[in-house]
Amino acid sequence: MTVRGNFDLRDEIQAFWSDRAASFDDFPGHEIFSERERRAWHDLLSRHLGPAAGRGVLDLASGTGVVSHLLDDLGFRVTGLDWSEPMLERARRKAADRGRAIAFRLGDAERILEADESFDAIVTRHLVWTLVDPAACFAEWLRVLKPGGMLLIVDGDFVGQGAGERLLMRIEAFARRHGLARDRGPALSAELAGRHRSILSRVHFSGGARAEDVAALLAEASFAGITVDRRLGAIHRAQGRHMPLLKGLARQVQHRYAIRATKPPI
């Protein structure tokens, strides 16, 4: 990666995800690998957003459009926003190949170039943990939501490990030392993995995006009706079927969650 003058953390994050775009859909947990997982996502989205009824939804940090397609499946009018052109190129190509009328736009989740009260709902997946200034982002998200509009965050603590995950990691390390585990699935290059660790050490949630901390910041930003949903097991079990055994088991014990919040009505 070329280092430029005034190349700050936000620029690093943008460059990292641009460089991830080519292989993004190869990883279980990014693209949808089965109808079982697709149904599980549909259930989660419907549980929190309710019937689509043609409502307009903004998919923030839409990447290659995975969540945008899930929302489109359900009948929402979807706009995907991402600040990585390589991600958007793949998203637009995928939508064209599938005959989807999804609008993908270049934009920053912290500085959304949309009018006030533009969307009935906002959905984000695995965005919050990357935020440099979540308070500024949440204020911006509140601004572009219509009164009574919904925010749905799907995220997790990708830093801290509970006792169950630590045990599984020790078992995996033992298995690799003794040549008992060979299928690692797709993995980041050493260079990309190093950049990921460096970025993670400097974002706001460098110690892990715990649900209670995210919820508290949403309340400070004037969101209401904040609820935390840990019932993501159906999604994680479906994803685990396409992962090495121990990684799939770890996925099911990690601190992952959905948070729903509402912009108060006028």
Rank of each mutant, 00 (worst) to 15 (best):
Arg177Ala: 05
His178Ile: 08
His178Pro: 05
His178Glu: 10
Gly179Glu: 00
Leu180Ile: 05
Ala181His: 06
Arg182Trp: 13
Arg182Ile: 10
Arg182Cys: 07
Asp183Phe: 15
Asp183His: 15
Arg184Val: 13
Arg184Lys: 15
Gly185Leu: 12
Gly185Glu: 11
Gly185Phe: 06
Pro186Gln: 05
Pro186Asn: 13
Pro186Lys: 04
Ala187Gln: 13
Ala187Lys: 15
Ala187Arg: 13
Ala187Leu: 08
Leu188Phe: 13
Leu188Asn: 09
Leu188Ser: 03
Ser189Thr: 15
Ser189Arg: 04
Ala190Leu: 14
Ala190Arg: 15
Glu191Val: 02
Glu191Ile: 01
Leu192Asn: 01
Leu192Pro: 06
Leu192His: 08
Ala193Leu: 15
Ala193Gln: 15
Gly194Asn: 15
Gly194Leu: 07
Gly194Lys: 11
Arg195Tyr: 08
His196Val: 00
His196Asp: 02
Arg197Ile: 05
Arg197His: 06
Ser198Val: 04
Ile199Tyr: 00
Ile199Val: 07
Leu200Thr: 02
Leu200Lys: 01
Leu200Tyr: 00
Ser201Gln: 11
Ser201Gly: 07
Arg202Thr: 12
Arg202Leu: 12
Arg202His: 10
Val203Gln: 14
Val203Met: 12
Val203Trp: 12
Val203Asn: 05
His204Asp: 12
Phe205Gln: 00
Phe205Arg: 05
Phe205Cys: 01
Phe205Lys: 02
Ser206Val: 05
Ser206Glu: 10
Ser206Gly: 10
Gly207His: 12
Gly208Pro: 02
Ala209Pro: 04
Ala209Asn: 07
Ala209Leu: 03
Ala209Trp: 09
Ala209Ser: 08
Arg210Gln: 14
Arg210Met: 08
Arg210Cys: 09
Ala211Tyr: 03
Ala211Arg: 04
Ala211Asp: 04
Glu212Trp: 12
Glu212Leu: 14
Asp213Phe: 12
Val214Asn: 09
Ala216Lys: 15
Leu217Ala: 11
Leu217His: 13
Leu217Cys: 10
Leu218Ile: 01
Ala219Met: 07
Ala219Gly: 13
Ala219Tyr: 06
Ala219Leu: 09
Glu220Phe: 02
Ala221Leu: 07
Ala221Thr: 07
Ala221His: 07
Ser222Thr: 07
Ser222Asn: 12
Phe223Val: 01
Phe223Lys: 01
Ala224Trp: 09
Gly225Ala: 14
Gly225Tyr: 05
Ile226Asn: 01
Ile226Asp: 04
Ile226Cys: 09
Ile226Glu: 06
Ile226Tyr: 02
Ile226Arg: 00
Val228Tyr: 09
Val228Cys: 13
Val228Phe: 09
Asp229Gly: 03
Arg230Ile: 12
Arg230Cys: 08
Arg230Gly: 11
Arg230Asp: 14
Arg231Ile: 10
Leu232Glu: 02
Leu232Ile: 10
Gly233Pro: 03
Ala234Arg: 00
Ala234His: 00
Ala234Cys: 04
Ile235Glu: 00
Ile235Tyr: 00
His236Phe: 04
His236Met: 03
Arg237Phe: 07
Arg237Gly: 07
Arg237Met: 08
Ala238Gly: 10
Ala238Phe: 13
Gln239Lys: 14
Gly240Glu: 03
Gly240Phe: 00
Arg241Ala: 10
Arg241His: 08
His242Tyr: 06
His242Asn: 03
Met243Gln: 10
Pro244Cys: 01
Pro244Gln: 02
Pro244Trp: 03
Leu245Arg: 05
Leu245Ser: 03
